[in-house]
Amino acid sequence: MTSPSSNARRVFLQKLLAGSAAAGLFMVYRHPVVAALTGDDGDKAPDHDFAFVVDINRCIGCGQCVRACNVENNVPEGQFRTWIERYVVTPSGVHIDSPQGGMNGFDEVDESLAEEALNTFFVPKLCNHCAEAPCIQVCPVGATYRSPEGFVLVDSEHCIGCSYCVQACPYGVRFINHEKRIADKCTWCYHRVSKGKLPACVTVCPTQARLFGDLNDPNSAVAKVRQADNWDVLKPEAHTESMCLYLGLQRVVV
């Protein structure tokens, strides 16, 4: 004999068990920061909100990220999903360069320039995955979109290659892939994150100048950075709601 209430209790317990088992599996197989897009196939919208942090104070300009990105994403030669710039600020002006996107690191600047330098640093650049992305707005066919988790992505089967998005992006992160002849750009390694890994550039960054994580997870490094509120975004006047938060960003950087 089972009372309705005990029955309900049993169902509840079963659910609880199943739930915690699933959650447990999740914890085991997923990188904690990006316990992410796969797993939970419930019908509610995924409640992730990813963001990227670039810490300029830490970047050493080794180019590991650029190389890793090119390998991971088969980026054609001469095009870049991410790159590193070197800024040398002097009293007479600012000297910026990015030899081959910083892919092979940097050689020292001229001695005279080095002596003049008031301030010099490296700035990694990548797609900002803007919440108000101009590239999405202008795509005439809906081939670029923002996924529910905050990735701005390109549908390579639907893109017509008109390059309007390339024009609209204020950050110059988009390009027309020479080989595929469609729009291309950083995906924050969507394919990796969906498997519980970190983006390739974050994986290889030796100094943790690049961080990636879920803003909805209050313990994630990115959430803490955002909380601390000492970050900046590139070109704030473009009002794109950039999701790449820069630490140590100087005004001279564009």
Binding site: T90, G93, I96
Partner: peptide, 11 residues
């Protein structure tokens, strides 16, 4: 903008 070297983004 006081640029000392002609710089454009790699793409």
């Amino acid at each position: 903008n006081e640029s000392l070297l002609n710089y454009y983004f790699p793409n």
